[in-house]
Design a protein around this nucleic acid. Structure first.
Length: 619
DNA sequence: CCTAGCTGTCATTAT
DNA sequence: CGATAATGACAGCTA
């Protein structure tokens, strides 16, 4: 407001509130409306199948709909799409329109591409399909993610950023040729994990020069030399990861913990269980596993099945405005897909290739890598995740703790944030493997008493195999053994209790979500009932007036006429034609208008079939 | 002082 | 059979 600016140099403060979640909420709300057919104003017919939607939403995402709707401004438009558009291709695109997520499978990628091309969908780039088609068509051959050279799949010179190891899909997200405030979304190493913040509406950090993309890009090795994240405190904003050059001593995860994490990861990997699964967290990795549990949307290897779990090898393209669009590999079974393995391995090697080797530890002799584990994921890089850092340092974790739940959340993921103003230690950043301070000091005291030859912390953090090994090696006394087992048991149980409680809260929240959903459905049904009642009244009114007009022409009374019409002996072809029926007596004659109309109403319009409430009761 | 919520611990059961 | 996870119950602490 120029007029409000004072002339003495003092400027009127102008504040702009920009909600980080508003757009997500709007989109989610629209999606819910679509699913419940609320406020939908168009029916799209594809291959004889109907899809309800909102004109404005479709028009905003798609050239085809935009032009069609502009030319057809009628209410409740029914738009039949040409044969080029198939259900297989259109349905994922429609979902994408409302969710910003596009589900690809091996089977549908071609159809989706064709439909997107035909309809002129925004925010979808050809390169996306050019990348995906070979991936999905040769899925079993393991997706060949380009490593250092970035030379595979995408034809040379086609959106490939040479020497970067990743392909930048120009104009991927915005569909606009105008310069973007944020760098163009990058399909990091082809398959970015679903690490986008819960709501991608705003960048996780203020965009400083040279530091605009403080997400996967900044963490990746490609940007490492120039990344300012390294110099700014040494902490990568993404999950508070230490930067590559950081000394391991600075890690909040103790070396013992880190080593055991690796040990566990390798063990888990052998049995094909995601170490970051919310269903199977690392026993020896408390903070990490449970942070991952809390951040289920952040877990790249989550195993929790979703209702819309796609086929094996399916990928989700997620579009967001200010963060890189992502492709998230999905899985259906506990076993990881080759795509997923590739992704994890890629990230592990891609983030800190030097540290992966420098910090690698000798394998636990009891847990040698199986032959199957060759080529599987190495989670050494997880050692550098400082998940015990304050969540406020990490925009992603921080957001999880807020009440503003992400647009793509499921109920369970939001449980903690909504139910617990004070997150439990299992989710909070200050959680550690140690007991409370008093307990910890008492335990330390006891450890000194029994002259424990290794740190107490290791007792609860080391893997089972390492634990057994150290017990064998150390030749502990009976007292020491009892102490060690007691500490370990209590530690494990403590974490188990925390998990148990969190699950309980999640369950409660999920049930609350279900209640909310069912209430919405009830409201919707109630509205439908009211609408039907209105239409029923109108129908009855017109019917009765029709009868009266017929009666006024010298025909039998309207009631008798209706009774004749409703008589079971009536020939099916007779429609309100005056006739005499031997079965109709004066007693049969309906004397009440309400009775007549009640009988005349088709069964589907009878109030008692429409809903539990009769018109009289609702009136 | 009471209460609710959180947390650790123990006992038990299942895997 | 031992280790572990899950969970109910209980107690202590704290706001």
């Amino acid at each position: 407001m120029p007029g409000t600016m004072s002339v003495d140099g003092h400027q009127t403060s102008v504040f702009t509130f920009q909600s980080a979640v508003h757009c997500c909420h709007v989109l989610r709300s629209l999606d819910e409306q679509r699913k419940e057919d609320v406020l939908c104003d168009v029916t799209i017919v594809v291959e004889n199948r109907s899809f309800r939607a909102h004109c404005s939403v479709l028009a905003s995402c798609c050239d085809y709909f935009h032009s069609r709707f502009l030319n057809n401004a009628s209410q409740n438009l029914v738009l039949t799409l040409p044969h080029q558009v198939t259900v297989e291709g259109f349905e994922p695109l429609l979902d994408f329109t409302y969710t910003a997520k596009l589900l690809f499978t091996e089977d549908n990628v071609v159809a989706v591409r064709r439909c997107a091309q035909f309809l002129g969908f925004h925010n979808l780039d050809q390169a996306c399909f050019q990348f995906l088609s070979p991936k999905l068509s040769s899925h079993d051959a393991a997706v060949q993610l380009d490593r250092k050279d970035g030379s595979s799949e995408v034809p040379p010179g086609e959106n490939a950023t040479s020497g970067c190891g990743s392909r930048q899909l120009e104009n991927w997200d915005t569909g606009s040729a105008a310069p973007q405030p944020t760098p163009p979304p990058v399909l990091e190493k082809n398959l970015s994990l679903d690490f986008s913040p819960p709501c991608p509406a705003s960048p996780p950090f203020p965009a400083a020069p040279g530091q605009e993309q403080l997400c996967l890009q900044s963490c990746g090795p490609e940007l490492q030399p120039s990344s300012t994240a390294t110099g700014s405190g040494g902490l990568c904003p993404f999950l508070s990861m230490p930067s590559p050059g950081e000394e391991p001593a600075n890690l909040n995860i103790s070396e013992g913990v880190a080593l055991e994490m690796v040990d566990e990861c390798q063990i888990r990997d052998k049995v094909e269980v995601c170490p970051l699964s919310d269903q199977d967290p690392l026993p020896g990795d408390l903070s990490l596993a449970d942070q991952a549990t809390e951040c289920s949307t952040l877990c790249p290897l989550r195993t929790s099945a979703t209702p819309e779990t796609p086929d094996k090898g399916a990928l989700i393209f997620e579009s967001s405005e200010n963060t890189p669009s992502t492709l998230t590999p999905m899985e259906t079974s506990r076993g990881r897909s080759s795509v997923e393995r590739e992704v994890a391995e890629h990230l592990a090697k891609g983030f800190w290739p030097d540290l992966c080797t420098s910090l690698s530890e000798p394998q636990d002799p009891e847990d040698p890598p199986s032959s199957e584990s060759v080529g599987t994921v190495d989670f050494h890089w997880l050692k550098h995740l400082d998940l015990s850092a304050a969540t406020s340092e990490c925009p992603f974790l921080r957001d999880l703790g807020s009440d503003e739940t992400p647009a793509v959340e499921d109920c369970s993921s939001a449980a903690q944030s909504e139910k617990s103003p004070c997150p439990s230690p299992i989710n909070s950043a200050d959680y550690s493997n140690s007991d409370t301070e008093e307990d910890a000091s008492a335990t330390q005291e006891r450890a000194r008493e029994v002259a424990l030859p290794f740190p107490v912390k290791q007792i609860s953090t080391m893997s089972r195999s390492a634990f057994q090994q150290i017990l064998r090696q150390q030749q502990l006394t009976q007292e020491q053994l009892e102490f060690v087992h007691d500490v370990r048991r209590r530690s494990k149980n403590r974490v188990a209790a925390q998990r148990c409680r969190k699950r309980k809260l999640d369950c409660i929240h999920k049930l609350e979500c279900d209640i909310k959903k069912l209430r919405g459905q009830k409201d919707k049904l109630h509205q439908e009932q009211l609408q039907l009642k209105v239409s029923l009244d109108a129908t009855l009114q017109s019917l009765f007036s029709l009868c009266q007009s017929v009666c006024s022409e010298g025909s039998p009374p309207a009631e008798q006429l209706l009774a004749q019409y409703l008589s079971p002996d009536r020939p099916s072809s007779v429609l309100l034609t005056p006739m005499s029926s031997p079965s109709l007596t004066s007693q049969d004659t309906l004397t009440s208008k309400q009775q007549v109309v009640g009988e005349a109403v088709p069964p589907c319009l009878k109030p008692d079939l429409v809903g539990p409430e009769t018109p009289s009761s609702t009136a």
